[in-house]
Design a protein around this nucleic acid. Structure first.
Lengths: 261, 261
DNA sequence: CGATGGCTTGAACCCCGTCAACCTTTGTGG
DNA sequence: CCACAAAGGTTGACGGGGTTCAAGCCATCG
């Protein structure tokens, strides 16, 4: 049980002073290609709109942001971790190596969503998180969060609300796409990606799947071949159009119907 | 955005004063058979050992505990809710009605686990939670939690740790039992139930499944018939023994092997 | 005792995983 | 710019595992 004690005189500006700055020594080959830390503040942050934590009391706070290159591994299993992340742009894949030694895809992360809430309890990173594209991560230090929550009720509520939403998403997203036929799973997956990418955006029917086919198929629990077939099937039925990794939702209502079986 | 402000002079004893006390008017037929509220304090609580929140600074705090009868519905979908619960004894089933109108089993809750973390974000209860047996629930008011976290760093860390563990469990528990053959799913399910029921307990090989077969099969995504067959198969292989709802784990290692396929 | 609901067993069909071949895209080096 | 290789993705045929449907068995309770 680790208790973190702060002097009550610490200011909001101080508590978020940049830590880490990730040593610039050249790392091993497969490790992240040296994320570039950025010094900014919440009110100059260009990505305020997607951040679940832009509390009024937090505006003006320096933040620790970093850009990761595609395919870079931010954290892998059993890494020490004590930070929570907010994805500002790009997308992330979460995976674990199952007992068989294979990579199981646990889920994906899109802008505005949090990763690493488990670090409140566990000090070893239980997953591998890999960037699917060039991504911008905002780092939140646990001890700073603890202190901010105590001195700002506004921020406290906002952080807990963000956590509550994340829990809900983690519970319900997989539900729809783990039962039913492969076509239902595929339709549910597309709808999930579509809605999570189009919050606070203009309605655009198409989007790019940032993850390869076998990641998708692993996530929804089918084989890549079946996924390919069900995508063709959905296309023939006029629900979607597919061009490589670009998906257009042509008939959202039909897609919903197919998703429930 | 609701901000709750407390006078900083409030004491720990005051903040947890009993609210609600659930109106004693006779409710509708299907609603809970009038849970009986119990006035107690954390340090007289007989179930301290399973509670993830027995912070030293919280000992002595009055708690709002209630006993629910088997099959009673504590909350159903779209109920207003602003509380978080800790299950002290018994077991709970979490379900939602899917778009087809059927009940999908989302998961089960065992002593020491929390329910309702989503209430930080959502004010409507998204699930139906049903008691599988006579159960004891400890109720935590959101606004009390907010205040307790601010004045007690110890409690703050403990609550967040509990949440982190819950998130981890919600993510990893389903993973093992949603891929692979029906036998692997069944084995994984039994192992999950076994380990979650035997934390902090003597090693006992057997336990009672508090939920019916079709709840299990719905949860792991197979048909009741397939579940029945796979249980027979596991029994024939000597991994478990089955007598009605009593399961004995005879060969845990074999069960692990079968669970990974 | 019979009725009811939960659970198990059996047989037939069919969806989906497996395996293999083929096509497309991407990246690398000459 | 082209050749080639490697990875990613699609299509086809086949067989097995699991669902479906039906009947039967076994608990619990009036």
């Amino acid at each position: 049980v680790e208790t973190v004690a702060f002097g009550e005189t610490t200011t909001l500006l101080e508590i978020a002073s940049i830590h880490g700055q990730r040593d610039s020594s050249e790392n091993g080959p497969q490790r992240s290609s040296s994320p570039k830390p950025i010094l900014a503040t919440c009110n100059t942050c260009l990505l305020q709109k997607v951040c679940p934590l832009t509390s009024t009391s937090h505006i003006g706070t320096p933040l620790n942001e970093a850009i990761y290159e595609p395919d870079s591994i931010a954290f892998t299993e059993n890494d020490h971790f004590d930070k929570i992340y907010v994805l500002k742009s790009g997308s992330i894949q979460i995976s674990v190596t199952n007992p068989k030694g294979e990579q199981s895809i646990l889920g994906f992360v899109f802008p505005g969503e949090m990763v690493g809430w488990e670090s409140w309890k566990f000090s070893r990173f239980p997953y591998t998180i890999k960037m699917l594209e060039r991504s911008r991560l905002c780092t939140l230090e646990k001890k700073n969060l603890l202190h901010s929550m105590r001195i700002s009720p506004d921020f406290q509520v906002q952080l807990l609300r963000a956590a509550g939403q994340q829990v809900m998403r983690d519970r319900l997203s997989p539900l729809a796409m783990l039962h039913g036929s492969i076509e239902a799973k595929t339709a549910a997956f597309i709808l999930d990606i579509y809605t999570r990418n189009h919050v606070n955006k203009h309605i655009a029917p198409d989007f790019i799947l940032s993850m390869p086919r076998n990641s998708i198929s692993s996530y929804i629990g089918i084989t890549p071949e079946s996924l390919s077939r069900s995508l063709s099937s959905l296309r023939k039925k006029g629900a979607i159009s597919v061009f490589n990794r670009r998906i257009s939702v042509l008939d959202k209502k039909l897609l919903h119907t197919l998703a429930i079986d």
